[in-house]
């Protein structure tokens, strides 16, 4: 899950919820889907709360390039 972007995680979470809401998933699968949804939710929140703003400087190598 760590390779997925926030957007991918969020989209999958939405998909999971939409499938569950349609109600055509067998109950056993629904429980598994629910667990996956919980996992996705936690991953999204973790991304949001990951860290403080990071600001890096890229080398100024290009300045005088002709």
């Amino acid at each position: 899950m760590s390779e997925q972007s926030f957007e991918e995680l969020q989209r999958e979470l939405e998909d999971v919820v939409a499938r569950l809401e349609r109600g055509d998933v067998p109950v056993d699968d629904a429980i598994a889907l629910f667990r996956r949804g919980e996992e996705l939710y936690r991953a999204c929140v973790a991304r949001l709360e990951a860290a403080e703003l990071r600001v890096e400087e890229l080398s100024r190598g290009g300045n005088e390039t002709q």
Binding site: R47, E52, L53, R54, V55, E56, E57, L58, N63
Partner: peptide, 11 residues
């Protein structure tokens, strides 16, 4: 707040 910014200062 979780953003990552890469700054390139140039002329």
């Amino acid at each position: 707040p979780a953003a990552r910014v890469v700054v390139c200062e140039t002329r």
